[in-house]
Structure formats: C-alpha cells, structure tokens
Design a protein around this nucleic acid. Structure first.
Lengths: 146, 146
DNA sequence: CCTAAAATAATGCCTATTCATGTAAATACG
DNA sequence: CGTATTTACATGAATAGGCATTATTTTAGG
C-alpha cells in the first residue's frame, strides 16, 4: 500500500509560515514556467509587473516591493537595461536617486504577461468561491501591511 | 512630503501570488533572525521542523515537503549530518532509499524552536481574530493541497 | 530470467546570491 | 559654512543554489 500524499500531520502543516511558503511556492512555480517561456527571468517579471503599476520607481523602493535586496536588484536592473526592458534616469531632485522606467519594449513585453497572470490566478483559485478569494486577499493584506 | 508606504495601487498589490510571496517573506524573515541566532541555517530549520513531526523521511519526500529541490536538500543534509543534527539510514526494504532521522542533538535543538515558532505566529497574527486565523489557514490549505 | 525503463539519491559545474564594503550626494548640527 | 551622519546605489569576493548528469537499485515486459 502506497501513501501518495498522506494526511500530513504534525507541526509544519498547520504552521502559518509553512502554509504561506507552500502556497506561494506552489502558485509561483506554476507561473514561472510561463515567464521563462517568454525569455524572462523571474526577478525581471517582478520588476516589470511593479513598473507596470507605477512607472519611475527608485531602486531601493523597487527592491522593497519586489522583496529583493538592493544589490541583487541592481544586478537584475543591469541585465534588464542591457536587454532594453528598462532605463535608469537620474533624479534631478535628489541626485543620489536613480529612477527606473519602462521602455516601450518593456511595456510591450509585460502587457500579455499581466493578462496571463490574472488568468493563472483565476485557474489557481478555482476551488475557492469569490467570497473566499476576497477573504484570502483581505487577510493576506493585513499581514503584509503590518 | 514623504510617502512612507503609499496606498500602493495597481496590479501587484492585488495579485494573489504577490500577496502570498510578500506575506511569506515578511513572516519568515522575522523568524529567520531567531533561527540564525541559534546557529542554524534556514533550510536546516525546515528539515528539523519536518522531522520533528515525522521522523525517518526519505530524501525525496523531505525535499517535496521542504519545497527544496533534491540536490539542494542533499547538500543541506550533508551539512546537517556533519553537524550531528541528523543521520542517514539505508532503507533495507528499498536500498535506493535513504531515510533521514533526527539525532538526540537534533531533537534537542529543534524543541525550543518549535515553541518559538508558535509564539512568533501568535505575535505575527495579532491583528487577526481567532476566526480569521482559522479561515486564513483553511484557505491556504485548499491552495496547497490542490 | 534477461533486458529496458523508472525511481532514488549523489555529484559537479556554472551561474546567481549574499554580505561587506565603496562612492557619492543630501541632511543634520554645531 | 564645515564636518559628521545618513541615505542611495554600485561593486566585488566568497558562498550558495540550480540544472544536468551519474550511479545504483527496483520494477516491468517479453
């Protein structure tokens, strides 16, 4: 007799940090296949998705939002700038700052991915009612905005 | 005028995969400080926490649960075995398999961390009612067990 | 039985990530 | 003003991680 994915007792499967990590991992892993198929790296997708909402973010702010540390984001941005997806623009107000902007190429590349992400979210949460989806997001936002 | 953490409009802050990643990152990052303070690496904590619930797991199963790929887990296990936290034991039933068991040292190290994790979860979810906490976990389990 | 296919874990190379630091600009303060 | 502190971003060296492959054992098929 084989136990494929046993009821899973014990600590981890009721530990919130684990459930968050597992849900996040499961959902993202699926979508990352789409990202890679478009010739993008995962951090690049995150950056583009952020800039699609609000273009012209400073590096440190973008790092905070994308959950990457700043040196890593800088290297991601180097790659993206080389690929013509974003441009750095010096801030005249505060010359320490470097603002990141989408290029036309970047805007073109991100548009279909945003649509695909919405569709994927729809599919991934198919087992949840609209009310449950809203509830889940509401509760997650409480945790994120603390 | 400074906008500390602006209302954050747009796509990402209502995208489930982002909310999951951000909540997971936020919660784990806090607790990881505790882990490191105990001289453990994060993957080691995950392995110990799994084994605390169910001792004697095979490598691939442990990899699946901890969300790490198998080669990475093997390297983590090498380190942990060197540190005397776990032991590999050949499975006599199926000699391809290697079962991972906690040592006494491992058991000793994990116990207080499990308690600390529960306390941290309590603190981290302080803004949520008991009903909301249960609801959140229920919904996450639906996503994880798909 | 004997061979082909699948499953399990380990290895190794190459890239990516992390951590500490460096450089430059703005702010605070005496 | 001038200097110390803080903030912002980039860089580089050391480490960790990801991906493809290898070695071994088991299972399946003929």
């Amino acid at each position: 007799m084989e136990e494929a994915t046993p009821p899973a007792p014990g600590f981890v499967f009721d530990y919130l940090a684990y459930l968050l990590a597992a849900a996040s991992h499961g959902m993202s892993a699926e979508f990352h296949a789409v990202i890679r198929a478009q010739g993008l790296r995962v951090p690049e997708w995150r950056v583009l998705a952020c800039l699609a909402s609000r273009d012209g973010l400073m590096v440190s702010e973008l790092a905070r939002i994308t959950l990457y540390d700043q040196p890593r984001l800088t290297k991601t941005l180097n790659h993206m700038e080389g690929a013509g997806l974003v441009v750095r623009r010096d801030d005249e107000e505060d010359r320490r700052r470097v603002m990141i902007h989408l290029t036309e190429e970047g805007r073109t590349r991100i548009a279909p991915l945003l649509a695909a992400a919405r569709e994927h979210e729809e599919r991934f949460t198919r087992k949840l009612s609209p009310r449950e989806r809203a509830s889940l997001k509401f509760l997650l936002k409480l945790l994120v905005e603390r």
